[in-house]
Design a protein around this nucleic acid. Structure first.
Lengths: 352, 352
DNA sequence: GGCTATTTGAGGTGCGTACCTCAAGTAAAG
DNA sequence: CTTTACTTGAGGTACGCACCTCAAATAGCC
């Protein structure tokens, strides 16, 4: 009646506990035939390994690191506090999570940070950094050392990561275009597209998706070339001011990068028509406030808590060689209006 | 260096293991002063109870039941399979989850189902049923028996449930109104509002939020009285046909209930202008298909997997008297367009 | 100070698995 | 048929905590 244990499994397979252990944990020194026998018995009696007991017996703790850009924007600091919060919640479950800020635009720094992981006894790492040949190789080396690696928020499709945790940026761009197109209505006009830089993969992907939808579904709209702010407020002010002056038929603005603070304040300073549709990425206190005030029409975002927890779950599953529930790890592209803004939680703490 | 155990805690508090155990598990027979001493030591040495070892030692399994309406619509069958999937994934973690279909419109049936739970050794229950005085009392009785109760999808605000797992329906209605208002543009016209019934709390709440936003932000639009389909296709066909004929200035349709199949096929049969904005609730194969075909402009939904997992996490935390991570349990009101539709997963199974 | 009622300590067992050792067994190769 | 190499079994300890019992210590009371 009660759940079968390894003991039952050994009996059912007609082998000893030691052999069952060898099979379950993939140790060698077992004939293929015997492995088969055990697997058959697993199936027969419906044996399910008790993760609770297993992690306890393993007397292991898991140590995971998030390697993040050292840029100071709110999106990143939300990630940092989310990692801290998740780490607190997971103390009960033998998991430690830390963040490591690195100048990720310098591949050498990333390589160095990744290289130091094994020395620190890290079991898994989530990396948010642009893909370069150097980082690709470093990721390969980290994995060769038996450390699980996920790319985080920004994928490195050609790197040997275990998985990518984040959204599809082409679809994010398509979503932005659809919203702008539908919010703008039938009258023709221009959409300003503003990004921190067009060098990054996410900007390229979003732009690609954006253009595809504008061309196909909203041909009466004209999307401007991407205006780069380089995350510099003086420059942002200047280029935006020029662009606005040069665009009499402005209908919408797409703030493509996660750091929209500079652009938003430049827009406020300059002033645009109240019916100008503005869409930004990532829910921060600033974009939340702008949604409420009506300055922003919509925000396209990903749930940061979900991102972080998903990364930790996946890293842990890899480290424990356990399965993951795929449907739980799909990060959604969320559209936020003022109406469906998540209410601010009173207690950002773990509570019980 | 390593994590403090109960042994370390006992030493730090200057008491025995037995006393530590009494304090940690809230057994009585301990002087208030001693409890204080132990709690101080917990704080001092940063003791964190190891949930893994605790559940193992408790030799307990958790058995949770979802009490769901016996209506046959796709939304419900998605919930059922999601519960099954979560149950499979949680076998590793000493959790069993089942669904129980009940004619929830009959309070007596709900009361009976809830009454049987304790007999079956159930540790927690998620209830999706309309609030009535009878169900309210039954929930109270269930909780008095030490069984955790969450209301699920449909809240019963006045019942003594531990928590509600689901979205805020007023905000859902506000979201629908905002989308319709923005998609329709400035021209005046009528919005048809269609629901299965206006008796249910979720319909009332959604309608309330919807009207508030239409009146405030889109006064040029006129929202029709709620048209009830009673989930009957013949009736749906008839009332919809009448309504369409009587509404020459139709601009949009809001399908307010989770079961939109009958209404959508009636719309298809009857034919409406291609630029008519149509918004429905819940992502099902039908609404997905309708988004792709363009029949639907947007779908407002909640992640069913998240709902189910959240309910199970909360029930388990209550049963174990453990904390929950609040930020993880907030169910989001999601807006789906064709562009941000989650891709269908190839393997709906647990993999890894 | 003696009594009772309450509080505490000591020590044990078990949860299901991991991981180790050493001896005994079996198969393959010559 | 022997030798060697590979497989398997038996049995143990440990993980951190829950839960039990019984005796001993202490507090509160008159």
């Amino acid at each position: 009646m009660s759940k079968p244990t390894t003991r039952d499994l050994a009996a059912a397979a007609g082998v000893s506990l030691a052999t069952v252990d060898r099979v379950l944990n993939g140790r060698d020194g077992v004939r293929a035939k015997t492995i088969e026998k055990v697997n058959a018995a697993i199936h027969d009696i419906g044996f399910v390994r008790d993760q609770t007991a297993a992690t306890l017996a393993r007397k292991r703790f898991y140590y995971f690191v998030f390697v993040l850009p050292d840029r100071q924007d709110e999106f990143l600091s939300l990630i940092v506090s989310s990692v801290a919060e998740a780490g607190r919640a997971l103390r009960h479950e033998r998991v430690t999570a830390r963040t490591l800020r690195v100048p990720t635009n310098d591949p050498h720094s990333v390589v160095q940070a990744l290289g130091a992981l094994a020395r620190d006894g890290v079991d898994g790492v989530a990396v948010m950094a642009p893909e370069t040949p150097q980082t690709r190789d470093a990721i390969q080396r980290v994995r060769d050392q038996g450390i699980a690696v996920v790319t985080f928020v920004a994928d490195q499709p050609n790197a040997a990561r275990d998985r990518f945790i984040g959204i599809n940026d082409v679809d994010a761009g398509r979503t932005a275009a659809t919203l702008i197109g539908r919010f703008c209505g039938a009258a023709p006009g221009t959409v300003l597209v503003i990004a921190e830089t067009i060098q990054s993969r996410d900007s390229l992907d979003r732009r690609h998706g954006f253009d595809a939808v504008v061309q196909q579904d909203f041909p009466h709209l004209h999307a401007s070339p991407t205006i780069e702010t380089y995350a510099d407020s003086a420059r942002t002010e200047r280029v935006l001011s020029n662009a606005l002056a040069a665009t009499p038929d402005l209908r919408a603005i797409y703030l493509m990068s996660s750091a929209s603070a500079a652009a938003l304040s430049a827009l406020d300073a300059h002033g645009v028509a109240p019916d100008c549709v503005v869409i930004a990425h990532e829910l921060t206190s600033l974009t939340r406030q702008s949604l409420i005030s009506g300055r922003l029409s919509a925000v396209i975002t990903q749930d940061i808590g979900h991102l972080v927890r998903s990364a930790l779950r996946v890293l842990r599953a890899k480290a424990e060689n356990a399965p993951t529930v795929e449907s739980q790890e799909r990060i959604r592209i969320e559209i936020l209006l003022e109406a469906n803004l998540p209410r601010l939680e009173e207690t950002p703490e773990v509570s019980g």
